[in-house]
Write a protein that binds this DNA or RNA. Structure first.
Lengths: 189, 189
DNA sequence: TAAATTACCTAGGCCTCCTAGGCAAATGTA
DNA sequence: TACATTTGCCTAGGAGGCCTAGGTAATTTA
């Protein structure tokens, strides 16, 4: 019989696509096998477990997201950079909801260290170079930005902003404005 | 044979405890049945499905969390209220990680309307009464607060703040300071 | 071209979700 | 108190997901 030509990389990519189509939590070994027209057991030559598959999708997504954020920041500074950074995350989450969810998967510490997570905080620090923050304020500001963007995207995706006439679209740039103002006037310790 | 004395309420409470012990995503009908020493099938007289059980745990948690936030706000205003509100969420997440995760479950629109979610945004608006924001800034500020607190707690729980010497404990009050400063100096549209 | 490797298979075990139908305990009624 | 009704939990069983062991056929290497 002809072979399907599976390998870890292809499975990971197909898993990411599947996540975007049906949701990250619905990515299963069985569903992925079905997509390739092979039996579940066949996937275990390429992927150790269902958890391993999900982790690989998470790592892929973190890389993609870091690439996007880096591209968005190139040549920008100050508020411009802040807005571009913010939009890079939000746009990725809208275009690739499954991958974005994957990027939020809890990784074990070692895997996290080997991931693109470090690039993400470097990029956030790059945004802050346009403002005037000394340590430890810079670290706190990085945390604030990450928290706010992630939190907003999560609440938006969960439909949390649909109960008032003001759209999520309208609030978003104003929240970026507010963060910009805050970073320019960070309170003294 | 003696009966276990199950009912929807007891199952929901036990499910919430189970969530805190093993994680919300590990709450299963089987695990809950085991805890009561009955067969899985027996639970279906009290709960329609696994999803139904999880939704009930989510609603319970949202109520509890709103109660806590309301109690924290009583008699406070301004930055005091902001800090108490923030701490109420974070403390609940630490004491009841499974319930907190449950409270973030995506609810269908009707269920969300019937939930305590509305109380949560009312409480956030109460915090903002200590600041001087007109609509639509107030709505945007509510969204910012919700996003930031939720995002921070999520990143903290995922171990996202463990890669630098600055602890999450140190950053948190500074982020509350920063939000207070921002609310006092909200940028003009 | 033969040997070694690799890709996928079958078979089967375990777990979770959920339905159907049954019996026995608790509760209501005469 | 006796019977009827309701209700709580049961057994049986199907479907689907995860994963292992062991096999065979396709491909690559020597």
């Amino acid at each position: 019989m002809a072979r399907a030509g599976l390998n870890t990389e292809r499975l990971t990519r197909a898993g990411a696509e599947l996540a975007d189509e049906v949701g990250f939590d619905r990515v299963t070994v069985s569903a992925l096998a079905r997509r390739f027209g092979v039996k579940d057991a066949s996937l275990y030559s390429h992927v150790r477990s269902s958890q391993d598959l999900k982790t690989r999708i998470a790592l892929l997504s973190l890389e993609e997201l870091a690439d996007r954020a880096a591209a968005a920041l190139a040549g920008r500074a100050g508020k411009d950079a802040l807005a571009a950074f913010a939009d890079a995350y939000r746009d990725y989450a809208r275009e690739h909801p499954g991958r974005y969810a994957a990027a939020r998967l809890e990784l074990d510490p070692q895997t996290a260290r080997d991931s693109a997570a470090g690039r993400h905080s470097q990029l956030a620090r790059a945004v802050l170079r346009g403002y005037d923050l000394a340590e430890p304020d810079e670290t706190d500001a990085v945390r604030l930005l990450g928290s706010t963007f992630h939190g907003y995207i999560a609440l938006e995706r969960a439909g949390g902003f649909q109960h008032t006439p003001r759209t999520s679209e309208q609030s978003w740039p104003r929240i970026v404005d507010a963060l910009d103002a805050l970073l320019r006037n960070w309170p003294a310790g």
